[in-house]
Design a protein around this nucleic acid. Sequence first.
DNA 1: TCAATATAGAAAATGATTTTCAATATTTCC
DNA 2: GGAAATATTGAAAATCATTTTCTATATTGA
Lengths: 141, 141
Amino acid sequence: MDKLQIKELLNGQKFRLTSERESLLDVFASSSSMLTPSQLYELADKHDINIGLTTVYRLLEVLTKVGVATPFLVDGTIFYAYCGCEHHHHFVCLSCHRVMDIQGSCPSFDVPDNFRVSSHRSDLYGTCSDCQTANDAGCTH
Amino acid sequence: MDKLQIKELLNGQKFRLTSERESLLDVFASSSSMLTPSQLYELADKHDINIGLTTVYRLLEVLTKVGVATPFLVDGTIFYAYCGCEHHHHFVCLSCHRVMDIQGSCPSFDVPDNFRVSSHRSDLYGTCSDCQTANDAGCTH
DNA sequence: TCAATATAGAAAATGATTTTCAATATTTCC
DNA sequence: GGAAATATTGAAAATCATTTTCTATATTGA
Ligand SMILES: [Mn+2]
Ligand SMILES: [Mn+2]
Ligand SMILES: [Zn+2]
Ligand SMILES: [Zn+2]
């Protein structure tokens, strides 16, 4: 997904893509894992991008509002992953917290006619191949 | 779902179904809405069941652990609904917060062979019929 | 250029959740 | 039955995540 597109999306809701947000977004989008706000803050730090934690919260908030970030609830904790705008489904590795896009058409369920379905989520949870071999080797990382 | 079954499930993990938990469970299971811990606490109060908020948190924790309660993340807030053990899918009304079971077979996605899928969630979000007619009538409740 | 609007970030406030702990209840085993 | 071990309760305190506040700064738009 293009950064210009994201800027347009944000501007459409009177949000701005500042240099701070752009740097953070780069870090966020390049991570294949779902992250807590604090984890994103730490990760940015490692890239020598020193942004206030409040700003991290605000970025995740606006990205979620425009649909570019997706929140995941895992084991009582809320994580965020950069997922772009096109609707798709996910596999979440409960071991390494990586989030992978998966192929497949949207599920269809029997919903009463008079219900309006505005969105849906279909997420799979489990262990990715890397983490399985790691576990096989006796490593709990 | 039988209360005895729930007791067995809890006992299986060395949890006990005390009288406090049983009263709370009655209130919880009879609600068709997803609830925050505080909301369940208030609801119990209305039924003249006065249980500490800490106990409410602990009940939801153990019920989630044994799979009888399901957490929902909606708009940044974590709610819980009594859902029993048999796997199924849900429609969540974003207006009244009721959670309805929906029919349909589990979706199938293309997941790499070497991934282990341990669980999945398929949730629909929208507006139930009651809330649509309420909105039509100009009521924002 | 000037006014209006949005953001950054530190500090403080808030609020939700967890921990602690003493009392009580339940289970286990002799 | 009756310890001893284990689990629970709930109030209070502590902790932790998130939001609010506020001032300086930046951006947008007439
Ligand atoms: Mn994705
Ligand atoms: Mn259900
Ligand atoms: Zn993994
Ligand atoms: Zn409704």
